[in-house]
């Protein structure tokens, strides 16, 4: 059995597809594609399909992925990509299909590129000057307060015309591992007079393993 990872971009319209809906859509697309994906056994067999580190609604990404299985020993990634792409909803671009190299549990951090209106610079300056930046994170067990500065001591941004841009790296894990949604930072900046979320673009650019390798 080979685990196959499908990498895709999720931008534009598709940024508003929830994980649940995305799972349904992918099930159908895989079925249509007639690719030799593995079905779970049992009374009601369905395609084995698992998404890693899904985004919040409205955020975009260049590096989303999901995994399926196949009984084939090797696959022609390009053929898989070509079979899937025409079936995708608008905004989803399949970038690569290949045998999985790492396990989802090895994902440690995610890089995001944030674009905001230039007049949010003051909020970023305030963030950089502050000692702490406490935010409340919702967890399965309730609310937890944490200090963003621990993970993002300083944000260096560049202003280009009406926009400002910066890149950040946040812990990204599944299960028990810490996962920080960039929305926490956006809310925090908004609280300091930064632009509201809908004026900003959150684009996930990379997922990294603990050793700093691109998740593949």
């Amino acid at each position: 059995m080979t685990t196959v990872r499908i990498f895709f971009e999720k931008c534009g319209e598709s940024a508003y597809i929830s994980l649940l809906d995305l799972q349904r859509v992918f099930h159908r697309l895989l079925k249509i594609s007639e690719l030799p994906v593995w079905y779970t056994q049992g009374f009601n067999p369905h395609i084995y399909l698992s998404f890693s580190c899904p985004l919040s609604l409205g955020q975009e990404s260049l590096c989303e992925s999901c995994e399926v299985k196949t009984e084939q020993e090797s696959i022609d990634g390009e053929a898989w990509r070509a079979a899937l792409q025409p079936l995708m909803p608008r905004g989803i671009t399949v970038t690569k299909v290949a045998p999985a190299q790492a396990k989802v549990g090895e994902i440690a951090t995610a890089a995001y590129r944030i674009t905001m209106p230039a007049d949010s610079a003051a909020a970023l300056d305030a963030y950089n000057a502050a000692e702490t930046a406490e935010v409340t994170k919702k967890t399965k067990r309730g609310h937890k307060t944490l200090d963003l500065k621990q993970y993002l001591p300083r944000i260096d941004y560049t202003v280009a015309g009406k926009e400002l841009v910066f890149d950040i790296l946040l812990p990204c894990g599944s299960g028990e591992a810490l996962n920080l949604n960039p929305a926490l930072l956006m809310d925090c900046l908004n609280g300091q007079g930064g632009a509201p979320a809908w004026q900003c673009q959150v684009l996930r650019t990379h997922l990294y393993t603990a050793s700093g390798q691109d998740f593949a």
């Binding site: 534009g12 319209e13 598709s14 508003y16 597809i17 929830s18 809906d21 859509v25 159908r28 697309l29 609604l57 409205g58 079936l87 995708m88 909803p89 608008r90 905004g91 509201p196 979320a197 809908w198 004026q199």
Partner: peptide
Amino acid sequence: KEALSLVQKPGRYTGGEPGC
């Protein structure tokens, strides 16, 4: 984008479904 960020199930308003 502002409207979408403030409503339930924004996917109803974006289009882009397969088969469009």
